[in-house]
Design a protein around this nucleic acid. Structure first.
Length: 248
DNA sequence: CAAATCGGACGGTCAACTGC
DNA sequence: CAGTTGACCGTCCGATTTGG
């Protein structure tokens, strides 16, 4: 994942925040898509969702963790000429707040409950989470929220001994599901609160939709991570995915 | 039925441009 | 020089195809 803080594409993501009373949610279930800054070569090739962790979930799932390396980005073209810019809407400054796409309210179909009647979010899903200490190095520090902006949190995850679930992971690329791997250790998930009773590696026992990210120590899969993958090391040619034909 | 493929929508970045 | 704009390029959704 994008190390999506909470929820996925179809659930309420962290960067959304509660609607003021009386304001109808713009798009109830579908929020803005979040992307990782740099997908690994495997995900890139497959055009599949990657995450910030290395190895990423998808690579781990497919047992190609050691091949999980960042893809190389092309350099942007420079010196591209631009035409004259459009004026902003003539009226200048402000956009009518009601016309702003973000604020557009959807008519509530008959039979649909009002927004306030949406199912309550369990506290552990609503609580802010963050990465475990020591993992911050991989990610830019969360910015302090500007007024009107939702605060950013590091997603937090831990790994623990957990009875392996019956592996029937579905969902795209096994998102939010367990994947086949040696028993005893289990993928990380986000934690609502500080890990109290579960030790240094743990998983919240009540998160069925555990989003996962790899802990930096590579502890959970010793046979896979006998040695840490060389960070950003050499990897062959970046894009070999479906024809985009813009390479040179 | 699951996995692989891939077209194309979507999102982020950043240099060119504009106006103060 | 800060703010705006829009092209460029990467990500990944979701439909389709392929293979066991």
């Amino acid at each position: 994942m994008t190390v999506h803080p909470v929820g996925g594409y179809s659930s309420m993501p962290m960067h959304m925040y509660p609607f003021p009373p009386g304001l109808v949610p713009p798009q109830p279930l579908r929020s803005k898509r979040r992307q990782v800054k740099n997908a690994c070569t495997n995900c890139q090739k497959a055009c599949k969702k990657c995450d910030d962790a290395r190895p990423c979930l998808r690579c781990v799932k497919y047992g190609i963790a050691e091949e999980c390396v960042d893809s190389q980005r092309k350099e942007r073209k420079k010196g591209v000429k631009r035409g004259p810019y459009k004026k902003r809407d003539g009226k200048g400054s402000n956009v009518d707040i009601n016309d702003a796409p973000e604020q557009q309210s959807m008519p509530i179909p008959p039979g649909m409950p009002p927004p306030s009647a949406s199912p309550p979010m369990p506290p552990y899903m609503a609580a802010p989470v963050g990465y475990a200490a020591g993992f911050y190095g991989q990610f830019p520090a969360p910015t302090t929220p500007k007024p009107g902006e939702a605060p950013a949190y590091y997603p937090q995850f831990y790994i623990t001994h957990v009875p392996p679930p019956n592996h029937n992971g579905h969902g795209q690329d096994g998102e939010q599901q367990g994947y086949a791997q040696p028993a005893q250790f289990y993928p990380a998930t986000f934690l609502p609160y500080a890990p109290q009773p579960y030790g240094p590696y743990m998983v919240h026992p009540h998160r069925p939709d555990a989003q996962m990210a790899m802990a930096p120590q590579y502890a959970p899969f010793p046979q896979l991570y006998g040695k840490p993958p060389s960070a950003g090391g050499s990897h062959e040619n970046g894009r070999s995915d479906h024809a985009r034909g813009d390479d040179n």
